[in-house]
Lab assay of single mutants.
Amino acid sequence: SMGQARALMGLSAQLDEELDFREGDVITIIGVPEPGWFEGELEGRRGIFPEGFVELLGPLR
């Protein structure tokens, strides 16, 4: 894990590789696949999402 982030708003996945989450969910960050995107894990599910949907809870490791 690289850190954690809290969802500022919900994301309804449009693509298979995207992660669904609700506002307030705390997501474990597991990677940065490309600039502007995070890869995360939530409730046993993994996927990517735009960084603008979340606030980091501390610096990434």
Rank of each mutant, 00 (worst) to 15 (best):
L60H: 13
G31C: 06
L15C: 13
E43V: 02
M9R: 15
S1R: 09
L56D: 04
E51R: 14
W37M: 14
M9Q: 14
G58D: 10
E51W: 05
R45V: 01
E34M: 08
L19A: 00
R46W: 01
L8Y: 04
M2V: 05
G24S: 12
F38D: 06
R6S: 03
S12R: 09
E17L: 08
E23K: 13
L60W: 08
R22P: 13
E51L: 01
E18P: 09
L15T: 15
G3F: 07
E18L: 09
R22C: 15
G36I: 05
I27G: 04
A13T: 15
E41I: 14
G44T: 02
F53Y: 14
E18I: 11
F53C: 12
R45I: 04
Q4W: 03
L8N: 04
P59S: 08
R46C: 12
G31R: 10
A5D: 03
G3V: 09
A5N: 03
G3H: 03
D16H: 12
A13E: 12
G47P: 04
G10R: 09
D16F: 02
Q4P: 05
G47V: 02
G40H: 09
M9T: 14
F38Y: 15
G40W: 14
R61L: 15
I29R: 02
E41L: 09
G31A: 06
Q14L: 06
G10Y: 10
D25V: 05
I48P: 08
G44A: 00
G52D: 10
I29V: 09
L56E: 06
A7M: 03
G47C: 02
R61P: 15
M2Y: 10
E34L: 05
L19G: 00
R6H: 01
Q4V: 12
L60K: 10
D16L: 02
R46L: 02
D20Q: 12
A5F: 01
M9N: 10
V54C: 08
L57F: 14
I48N: 05
E51V: 09
R6K: 10
F49L: 07
F53A: 12
L60T: 12
L60Q: 15
G10M: 01
A13Y: 01
G36S: 00
R46S: 07
L15M: 14
E43L: 06
G44F: 00
L8R: 11
S1F: 13
L8I: 15
M9G: 03
R61F: 08
E23F: 03
E34G: 08
G47T: 01
M9H: 11
E23R: 09
L19D: 08
L15E: 14
D16E: 10
E23L: 03
R6Y: 11
F38M: 06
D16S: 13
T28R: 09
